[in-house]
Design a protein around this nucleic acid. Structure first.
Lengths: 337, 337
DNA sequence: TTGAAAGCGTTACCAG
DNA sequence: CTGGTAACGCTTTCAA
């Protein structure tokens, strides 16, 4: 697939520490000392070595160095789509948490395809010490490739989990959202769910439970494509079949933003004539008009928690139990509901 | 799930290929063969080795492996703020381009601080084969730490460049934007520039040139904080001092989106009473209402070009010249102007 | 089919 | 302050 472009003879042999040593007329040891800023070296010698190194364009091999001093930790961060603001936020949070530990993070964007995901799995184990992220393929497969390497799944809404996984608990948040709407006098509440996956989302289940507990019809749900356009289209569909709906919850903020836009287009003012509540609490929700009310997730905590668990798994001390690997979503009021 | 003993000080010595070999009663290379799916091995032996490896929780050292077969390329991607949608898009593009080459990408988010940038520079050279990204510190410093490693700067709007750098050329795009506004009858056009850096931005220079060439007042410029709120505040300031302004260009889309929101708040309809044109052409511009007209950059091309140049630098064949390392911005009409 | 030996490029540990 | 020598963990010859 990828042709390794190699013009014969152009490939310059890699300059090693040995070459520098010879060029500077010292031993490899001394070169190492000069380059690593050790004390036990004469100033003149050091300068001579440094000059030689520069002249030769020498760069130490990260592999050789890593082999001998086993102190660098690199984790692999696997996300389905960096352009999806939710994953962007999680990634940023994970990067920050990793950086504070001095870790390096290799990021893999699987483009939401099983193929890329598989490709990533194949290569990742030879590049990192642990994996954090999101996989949609069967856990067996993930386990197969990651071997004994620590794996922390983020926000995977699955029931079984052989790995550590950070669970997102939106039950209370969604309940609060529905309660809020009811308190505002809404009696017909719909939902724009996530389309695509086979089974109904767990977020929908939360909605169903909350609506039911308030004695509402929990059946006014349509699937939406995971995009703003998808949210708009879904809202249109929903209002066609259920014209008396006055409020909608959505699978996530992207869909909610699309619904917001659609509402404006069809002339229903928000929140007066249509209340909209998203899910995720993205920063993006603050730039739309009106600002989006959302069942908000603390994405920084999400990322930080994942990295924290990786750290524990890596050292083998006190890994967090499933009950502690939870991030709870909370209703965050803004202008749209 | 195997939990390694969680007693402090019990840090288990790393399992090496040697341990597996001994456990399976074979030599090290036989283990290597089994693990790497080579043909020259008996099925039974292979299974025995695999079992032993699994039982011991063996994972090959990526350093040792990398040392002996030098075939993996890892590049470092340095960005100021992953949460800034512009950099998100660039990062996604770079990831995609790197992935298509089978490269790994270590991402560093410098949080827009000189300190983190410096920290990154210190460690990056020992982790990657080349660097792509954005630095705000003096180029001398960058050079000092990156040694002879290929470095490609993205969209750095500086005049001097000792490294390869992808230049963003918005001159024609901004000219087209101003021409468009003039054609629509706008005679008072302001700009919301980027605040913060010392010198005026090059984007402002483009605006000045374009406005002047149309015989307009190019002096109606205020600085804006790089955020939606900043854009809103800046618009307010601008309209206070120049109430007759009917159109604004902005340093980037984030600021423009803030301006859009502010316009709605103060009751000026867009584009009828105030035309707004952003810069960058972010996907984000499509979800606001009205959709944002923008001098758009092809961020995918930006990322792809950077990776392409890294590839050439790495192999040493035909590196692109400065003239080819340019991404031109183009006016993309939408609803806001 | 398997094993012994020779590196890969670097740093750590002792000598001098 | 400097230089041998021995790892580090793995893969690649080359023999057996």
């Amino acid at each position: 697939m990828v042709s390794s472009s190699s013009v014969p003879g152009t490939e310059p042999r890699k300059v090693t520490i040995h070459d520098v040593a010879r060029s500077a007329g010292v031993s490899r040891q001394t070169v190492s000392r000069a380059l690593n800023d050790k004390d036990e070296i004469d100033g003149t010698t050091k300068q001579r070595v440094l000059d030689a190194a520069r002249a030769l364009g020498y760069r130490p091999s990260r592999f050789a160095r890593g082999l001998v001093r086993q102190d660098t930790t690199t984790i692999g961060l696997v996300i389905p789509d960096l352009l999806n603001p939710f994953f962007t936020e999680v990634a940023a949070a994970a990067l920050e948490a990793a950086r504070s530990r001095g870790w390096h993070v290799v990021v893999y964007d699987t483009a939401d395809t099983a193929e890329e995901e598989r490709g990533t799995l194949q290569v990742i184990s030879s590049q990192v010490d642990a994996v954090v992220g999101y996989f949609s393929c069967p856990e067996d497969e993930v386990e197969l490739f990651t071997r004994g390497m620590p794996v922390v799944l983020i926000g995977r809404e699955h029931r079984t989990a052989r790995f550590s996984s950070i669970r997102i608990d939106g039950e209370d948040g969604v309940h609060a959202a529905v309660a809020h709407l009811v308190a505002r006098g809404h009696a017909q509440i719909g939902m724009l769910d996530h389309d695509g996956r086979a089974e109904p989302s767990i977020r929908r289940e939360w909605f169903t439970a909350a609506a039911t507990s308030h004695g509402l019809d929990a059946g006014m749900v349509v699937g939406a494509d995971q995009s703003a356009d998808g949210g708009g289209a879904a809202l249109r569909t929903l209002l066609t079949t259920h014209p008396d709906i006055t409020a909608v919850l959505t699978f996530n903020d992207i869909i909610a933003i699309g619904a917001l836009r659609e509402a404006r287009r069809i002339g229903r003012s928000v929140p007066e004539e249509l209340a909209v509540i998203g899910f995720d609490g993205l920063q993006l929700g603050a730039v739309v008009e009106p600002p989006l009310t959302s069942v908000a997730l603390d994405t920084r905590k999400l990322g930080a928690l994942a990295i924290e668990q990786v750290a524990r798994l890596l050292t083998g001390v006190n890994p967090l139990a499933a009950d502690d690997l939870v991030v709870r979503a909370e209703l965050r009021l803004a202008g749209s509901a």
